[in-house]
Design a protein around this nucleic acid. Structure first.
Length: 107
DNA sequence: CCATCCGCGCGTCAAGTACC
DNA sequence: GGTACTTGACGCGCGGATGG
């Protein structure tokens, strides 16, 4: 069973790069030290650390998913190459056969 | 054995892009 | 603009292959 990735693989845009809203997880919870508050109490430090951990965790998973998609995409491309090579071979054979027929007629 | 190489997957960062 | 998401690049550790 080939996924939709394969269908997209026939197009121009790498399927694993196609974006859909709400797909996957990721990083980015921008570290915010509120501009006015120069005091940096321990609670804030904890909060910052927590946010960073969450961000790292999300990005970790996002990277894993990204790699998985990329691998699948490459596999699809390889399959496609195999199919096209076969088609090419068949067409070459066909052409050869037709040429043969044509040559014998010409004689 | 052991040292070295190689391929692979991982975590992280940074830059780019989408979406609000 | 700010936030969320995606992905290329980098460095690291691990396990298997291989030559000495």
């Amino acid at each position: 069973m080939s996924s939709d990735l394969c269908a997209a693989a026939t197009g121009d845009i790498p399927a694993y790069q196609l974006r859909s809203p709400n797909s996957g997880l990721a990083q980015s919870i921008v570290m915010a030290a509120s501009p006015g508050s120069m005091q940096n109490p321990p609670q804030h430090a904890e909060e910052v650390t927590r946010k960073r951990e969450v961000r790292l965790m999300k990005n970790r998973e996002a990277a894993r998913e990204c790699r998985r998609k990329k691998k699948e995409y490459v596999k699809c491309l390889e399959n496609r190459v195999a199919v096209l090579e076969n088609q090419n071979k068949t067409l070459i054979e066909e052409l050869k056969a037709l040429k043969d027929i044509y040559c014998h007629k010409a004689e």
